[in-house]
Deep mutational scan, measured.
Amino acid sequence: DELVREILGRCTCPDQFPMIKVSEGKYRVGDSSLLIFVRVLRSHVMVRVGGGWDTLEHYLDKHDPCRC
């Protein structure tokens, strides 16, 4: 939770990309009902993408309208 909030807090946009914790390891992202699975691996916040894992920073770079 703290690492996810820290990464989201780096955004300086007036309207921050919403990530709402639904349950342990599950977050709702953006304005959709899309759920992502998150885990911490060796101090990196990882997001389940397709059949693999990606860093939360890279995921936000691709999906946050402010960072695109």
Rank of each mutant, 00 (worst) to 15 (best):
48 R>S: 13
6 E>W: 02
67 R>Q: 01
3 L>V: 08
27 Y>T: 02
13 C>R: 02
9 G>L: 06
50 G>H: 09
4 V>M: 08
62 K>F: 09
66 C>E: 04
16 Q>Y: 02
20 I>N: 11
14 P>M: 06
51 G>C: 10
31 D>R: 11
61 D>H: 09
7 I>W: 03
45 V>K: 04
46 M>R: 05
17 F>T: 02
40 V>R: 12
26 K>Y: 12
29 V>P: 00
57 E>Q: 09
2 E>G: 08
22 V>Q: 07
45 V>W: 02
34 L>M: 15
57 E>K: 05
65 P>I: 04
43 S>G: 15
26 K>S: 11
36 I>Y: 06
47 V>N: 00
43 S>C: 13
29 V>E: 00
15 D>P: 00
64 D>M: 01
35 L>R: 10
41 L>C: 11
52 G>E: 15
34 L>R: 08
13 C>T: 02
61 D>A: 11
30 G>H: 04
7 I>P: 00
7 I>C: 07
44 H>P: 03
65 P>Q: 03
14 P>N: 07
36 I>K: 07
50 G>L: 06
19 M>L: 13
27 Y>F: 05
68 C>T: 15
39 R>L: 07
45 V>R: 02
19 M>D: 00
63 H>L: 10
50 G>V: 05
45 V>G: 04
57 E>L: 01
13 C>Y: 03
26 K>N: 08
67 R>F: 00
28 R>Q: 09
25 G>V: 00
2 E>Y: 12
24 E>L: 04
10 R>H: 13
23 S>W: 05
40 V>E: 10
41 L>M: 14
20 I>W: 13
61 D>I: 08
38 V>S: 05
33 S>I: 02
3 L>T: 06
54 D>E: 15
9 G>A: 13
19 M>I: 07
15 D>T: 15
51 G>I: 05
14 P>F: 06
65 P>F: 00
54 D>Y: 15
11 C>I: 00
55 T>P: 08
62 K>H: 08
35 L>I: 14
27 Y>D: 00
35 L>F: 10
7 I>R: 02
47 V>Q: 00
38 V>T: 07
52 G>F: 12
1 D>K: 09
40 V>L: 12
32 S>Q: 12
62 K>D: 09
33 S>D: 13
66 C>T: 03
34 L>I: 14
64 D>F: 07
56 L>V: 00
52 G>M: 14
19 M>C: 04
65 P>S: 01
44 H>N: 07
5 R>H: 10
2 E>Q: 13
41 L>Y: 14
51 G>E: 15
46 M>F: 12
46 M>W: 11
46 M>I: 10
55 T>L: 10
47 V>P: 01
35 L>H: 09
27 Y>V: 00
68 C>E: 12
51 G>R: 10
20 I>S: 09
8 L>D: 04
33 S>R: 12
2 E>C: 08
65 P>V: 01
49 V>C: 12
35 L>K: 09
22 V>P: 00
37 F>Y: 12
67 R>Y: 00
61 D>L: 12
3 L>K: 12
23 S>Q: 11
23 S>C: 12
56 L>D: 02
55 T>R: 11
16 Q>L: 07
46 M>H: 08
38 V>N: 03
16 Q>R: 12
47 V>F: 01
37 F>I: 13
31 D>T: 14
29 V>S: 07
39 R>G: 09
57 E>F: 00
9 G>S: 14
22 V>C: 07
1 D>G: 05
16 Q>M: 08
64 D>A: 00
68 C>G: 15
32 S>I: 03
23 S>L: 02
50 G>D: 14
56 L>S: 04
20 I>V: 12
22 V>D: 08
22 V>H: 09
56 L>C: 01
61 D>P: 03
8 L>A: 07
58 H>A: 13
45 V>T: 04
12 T>C: 09
21 K>Q: 09
6 E>P: 01
39 R>H: 12
18 P>T: 13
43 S>F: 10
20 I>Y: 14
11 C>N: 00
35 L>M: 12
21 K>M: 08
32 S>G: 11
47 V>T: 03
61 D>V: 09
6 E>H: 06
18 P>F: 04
21 K>T: 03
59 Y>I: 00
7 I>N: 03
58 H>F: 01
35 L>Q: 10
36 I>E: 04
65 P>G: 02
30 G>L: 05
49 V>R: 09
17 F>K: 02
66 C>H: 02
26 K>M: 09
7 I>V: 09
57 E>S: 07
25 G>E: 07
45 V>A: 11
35 L>C: 12
42 R>K: 15
41 L>P: 02
9 G>I: 05
43 S>T: 13
10 R>L: 06
48 R>I: 05
11 C>W: 00
16 Q>V: 09
28 R>I: 09
58 H>L: 04
18 P>D: 09
59 Y>E: 00
15 D>Q: 13
29 V>H: 10
40 V>T: 11
21 K>H: 07
49 V>G: 09
27 Y>Q: 01
19 M>V: 08
25 G>A: 06
10 R>T: 11
35 L>S: 10
54 D>V: 15
34 L>W: 11
61 D>G: 10
44 H>Y: 06
24 E>A: 11
66 C>I: 03
30 G>V: 04
31 D>I: 10
13 C>P: 00
12 T>V: 09
2 E>H: 13
27 Y>R: 02
13 C>V: 08
46 M>D: 01
67 R>E: 02
11 C>M: 03
17 F>I: 02
42 R>T: 08
36 I>V: 12
45 V>F: 01
14 P>C: 06
21 K>P: 04
33 S>K: 13
51 G>L: 09
12 T>L: 04
10 R>Y: 05
62 K>E: 14
44 H>L: 08
57 E>A: 05
36 I>Q: 00
21 K>C: 05
53 W>L: 11
25 G>Y: 07
39 R>T: 12
40 V>G: 07
25 G>T: 07
18 P>M: 06
30 G>K: 07
52 G>W: 09
29 V>G: 02
16 Q>T: 11
15 D>C: 10
30 G>F: 01
4 V>Q: 00
67 R>G: 00
14 P>T: 11
1 D>W: 05
8 L>V: 11
56 L>H: 00
67 R>H: 01
57 E>T: 07
65 P>N: 06
43 S>K: 14
39 R>F: 10
6 E>L: 06
60 L>T: 00
15 D>F: 09
37 F>E: 15
39 R>N: 04
5 R>W: 11
13 C>E: 03
61 D>E: 14
37 F>L: 15
37 F>H: 15
61 D>R: 09
63 H>W: 09
59 Y>T: 02
60 L>F: 01
52 G>P: 04
6 E>N: 06
41 L>Q: 15
68 C>H: 14
5 R>Q: 14
24 E>R: 07
30 G>S: 06
50 G>N: 13
4 V>N: 01
40 V>Q: 08
65 P>W: 02
42 R>D: 15
37 F>P: 15
59 Y>W: 15
42 R>H: 14
34 L>C: 15
10 R>F: 06
48 R>Q: 11
5 R>F: 09
39 R>E: 10
28 R>H: 05
